[in-house]
Structures are given as C-alpha cells and as structure tokens.
Amino acid sequence: MKRGDIAVILCLLILAGGLLLPPRLLPPGPLTVYVNGEIAMKSMHVNGAEVEIDGGRARIASSPCPDQLCVHAGWLDKPGQSAVCLPRRVIVELRGARNEVDGVAG
C-alpha cells in the first residue's frame, strides 16, 4: 500500500458518507409509495411481481425473477429507500414530503 492508495480510499469513503446525508436532511413527513414512478395507494401486481403496500411501508412480496434481490430488500419504511427488480422492470420507492412537492410541480 502506498500513501496514494490510502488517500484514494479515504476520499471515496468520505464521498460515500456525504452522499448518505441528503435523504436524512429532508423534513420528516408523510411517506408516499411510488411504483414505477407512479403514486400507489394499495397492493398490486406489476409485471408479474407482487407489490405489497401497508400504510407507510411497502415491499416487493414476490417476483418470478431468478435472483430475488428485490424480495430480499424487505420492507421499505424510510424516505429514499427503494426495492428494484431489474429483470421484471419493477421499482418501488418511498419518497418523503419534499419529493412529493417536486413531483406535483414537475
């Protein structure tokens, strides 16, 4: 290991830490569930995947995809969290108050 190696590793870890901040700075508020970019209020099936919505939390309960990464993502209950199923093209996101306003304006 050289000094440059350690500098590179530190810079990248600081960058990762900095990127973690913005979602935490959002004001707490009601969470909205988005399925493939659209507001979803109740459980549904999308592209063969079963999206379960329960109050302010959501998850992909089952999917016919091979790797099951989206199912292993589990329940989403914080703003900015998402469960993504690439093979079935399903994305479930939780967005907080500020994102919601942006959605209406845009």
Binding site: L20, S82, V84
Partner: peptide, 23 residues
C-alpha cells in the same frame, strides 16, 4: 446502467453502499 434501464433515478439512492462495496 440500472437507472437507464429502469428509466428512473430512484436506484441512485444505493450509490453510497455501492461505493463502499467497491472500495
């Protein structure tokens, strides 16, 4: 690539974790 396939920037939330894994 995943963000392009899904047509949403939503997946970008996982960037910090992926940077740490990459390191």
């Amino acid at each position: 690539c995943a963000a392009l396939i899904m047509q949403t920037p939503g997946v970008l939330w996982s960037a910090p974790a992926l940077i740490v894994f990459g390191v």
